[in-house]
């Protein structure tokens, strides 16, 4: 039996016909909506490469059933930049060498944006490392990733202060 669901992906409303109940949100994004920025690493919730935001929260899309996302708001790596202007977290990953091969990077960036929005870590590197532990980097770019998250958090805070001043 086929089910129809509606969801918002990167600000655009989408209606999707799901003919196989087993489809995960990750497979829906990659194979049905052709948003291949979100990566399939372990496909078992261990590596974080599939991290997207579901209703404003970072989650593992590989462990989320697509049918369960009816009515949800999804943000993927394709939706964070403004045209040619990179999201500050994207720019910080480049500035601080926060990757080597790049496969885990979309998940790392979506996780970092989520971390900054959650506002639990402050500038404590230990708390940032702990809050990023759901994203593995086989190239071992962790030092650059940590610097990128801290720097992007600073820049976003300054930008917010300027806006509210």
């Amino acid at each position: 039996m086929s089910h129809s669901i509606t969801l918002t992906v990167n600000g655009k409303p989408r209606e999707v016909e799901i003919d196989d109940t087993r489809v995960t949100l990750l497979d829906l994004l990659r194979e049905r909506l052709h948003l291949t920025g979100t990566k399939k690493g372990c496909d078992r919730g261990q590596c974080g490469a599939c991290t997207v935001h579901l209703d404003g929260r970072r989650i593992n899309s590989c462990l989320t059933l697509a049918l369960s996302c009816d009515g949800a708001d999804v943000l993927t790596i394709e939706g964070v930049a403004h045209g040619d202007a990179l999201h500050p977290v994207q720019a910080a990953f480049i500035a601080h060498d926060g990757f080597q091969c790049g496969f885990c990077t979309p998940g790392q960036i979506m996780s970092a944006i989520g971390l900054i929005q959650e506002g639990q870590t402050g500038d404590d590197p230990e708390r940032v490392r702990e809050a990023m532990s759901g994203n593995l980097c086989r190239c071992g770019a962790y030092a650059g990733i940590l610097e990128a998250v801290l720097d992007a958090q600073d820049r976003l805070r300054e930008a917010n202060q300027r806006r509210s001043a």
């Binding site: 919730g45 974080g48 991290t51 579901l54 929260r57 970072r58 989650i59 593992n60 462990l63 989320t64 996780s111 989520g114 971390l115 959650e118 809050a131 990023m132 532990s133 759901g134 994203n135």
Partner: peptide, 9 residues
Amino acid sequence: GASAQLRNA
């Protein structure tokens, strides 16, 4: 327990 992504879900 788990990771931030898993705790969010």
